[in-house]
Amino acid sequence: MEGLSSLVQLANQQQAWVAINGGYFNRVRRLPLGALKDNGRWLSGPILNRGVAAWGERSLPQFGRLQLREWIVSPSGQRLPIVVVNSGYVQRGISRYTADWGSSYKALSGSETGLLIQAGSVRQRLGPAELDAGVLLRGDDLLLVARGGAELPWGPGEQLQLESRPSNDLGLAPHVIGGGPLLLLDGRIVLNGAAENFSSSFLSQGAPRTVLASDDQQVWLITMEGTQDSGPSLGETAALLQQLGLRHALNLDGGSSTGLVLGGSLHVKGRGVAGSVHNGVGLVP
């Protein structure tokens, strides 16, 4: 999951005729910050109950807010919650990483400890030095990483089981992309920054916008820019989309990330430059 690319390159790799940039990411670490699910596999788990769009093959996306609730369970019934999956969002507690993250995992914070689990059995306990150096991930390996003083009380040979369930059916779809805030649902403006842990300043500022939307008949890939100003606020964006007759809409990463590719060329450049992005959404014939 580590790395950035141009939107044109991402679109061309997938033979997408039309494409917009996707979800949030850490530009310094080049890691995803939100939901990315492809063909049933969580490349990056949802965070902060933020808005997502989810779809199956040849179907319009469905929209809502999503959390992924996971636990690691021992035979004695001890259950510890997992806070994030394959994510650059670093939080106190236990995080889970798989080979979908990449060929290896390297520590994202100080004093991490870990457990490498293979075929449901703890194979190795890992200290900070080993995680700093990097841990190889292959096949169905599962790496548990404890941060901020969280404990992993199990040792080699112990059997552990993963329990995972999404907060709603959006998390069951084979494909999911996260962003936020959610703007429209069933034709109503549902903008609620507090519910998705966005700051009030983020909600009020004007900026170029990228939106994935639906009118219940077609999917819409939308970018917006200001002509004489910095761009619309999220409230103005939601109102405009509603006036256009859209029923559901999700804000994606904006600002300098905003981009629109048509036929292999970049036609919209957020703040006038073609910024590198982590992922995108495209229409592939």
Results as ranks from 00 to 15, higher is better:
Gln161Met: 14
Pro166Trp: 00
Asp141Val: 01
Arg41Asn: 10
Thr113Asn: 12
Val85Asp: 00
Ser164Phe: 03
Leu152His: 03
Gln118Lys: 15
Asn251Lys: 09
Val135Ala: 03
Arg30Lys: 15
Tyr97Pro: 00
Leu152Pro: 05
Ser104Arg: 14
Gln67Leu: 13
Gly178Ser: 03
Leu80His: 06
Glu196Gln: 13
Leu10Gly: 07
Gln14Glu: 09
Ser256Gly: 13
Gly171His: 10
Phe202Val: 13
Gly155Trp: 04
Gly193His: 02
Ala19Val: 02
Ala195Val: 04
Gly187Arg: 13
Pro208Gly: 06
Ser87Cys: 08
Gln14Gly: 01
Leu191Trp: 04
Phe202Tyr: 13
Asp140Thr: 14
Ile72Ser: 05
Glu70Tyr: 00
Thr98Ala: 00
Ala99Trp: 00
Gly127Pro: 11
Ala238Thr: 09
Ser103Pro: 10
Arg92Pro: 10
Gln218Tyr: 09
Gly148Glu: 12
Phe63His: 07
Val176Ala: 11
Pro156Ala: 12
Gly264Met: 11
Leu162His: 06
Asp38Tyr: 13
Gln15Asn: 15
Asn49Val: 02
Leu266Val: 13
Ala19Trp: 02
Ser95Glu: 03
Gly231Leu: 02
Asn86Asp: 00
Gln14Met: 07
Pro32Gln: 04
Ala150Trp: 10
Gln78Ser: 04
Leu66Arg: 04
Met1Gln: 03
Trp154Leu: 09
Ala19Pro: 01
Phe198Trp: 06
Glu130Gln: 15
Ala107Gln: 13
Gly275His: 15
Val84Trp: 04
Gln242Leu: 06
Ala207Arg: 10
Leu250Lys: 08
Ala19Met: 09
Pro32Glu: 02
Leu143Met: 07
Pro61Gln: 02
Ser104Cys: 07
Gly56Val: 06
Gly120Pro: 12
Ala107Phe: 04
Arg188Asn: 11
Gly231Pro: 06
Ala213Gly: 10
Asp100Gln: 10
Glu112Val: 07
Ala249Phe: 07
Asp132Val: 09
Leu137Pro: 04
Gly64Asp: 06
Ser111Pro: 01
Leu160Cys: 10
Ser44Glu: 07
Arg29Asp: 12
Val18Gln: 12
Glu236Trp: 08
Glu158Lys: 13
Leu68Asp: 03
Leu136Thr: 14
Gly120Met: 08
Gly178Thr: 04
Leu116Gln: 03
Val135Met: 07
Gly157Tyr: 04
Arg41Leu: 14
Trp154Asp: 11
Val281Leu: 15
Leu131Phe: 05
Phe198Asp: 06
Ser121Ile: 15
Ser104His: 13
Ser200Ala: 15
Gln9Glu: 15
Ala146Arg: 02
Val145Lys: 03
Pro128Leu: 12
Ser214Gly: 12
Arg96Asp: 01
Trp17Leu: 11
Trp55Gly: 02
Val122Ala: 08
Thr98Asn: 03
Pro232Asn: 05
Gly102Phe: 10
Gly275Val: 01
Glu2Trp: 04
Gly187Gln: 11
Ala146Pro: 00
Pro174Thr: 05
Ile47Tyr: 01
Gly178Gln: 05
Ile82Phe: 03
Leu185Ile: 11
Gly282Asn: 10
Leu10Val: 11
Ala129Trp: 05
Leu68Pro: 09
Ala11Glu: 08
Leu250Ala: 07
Glu151Arg: 15
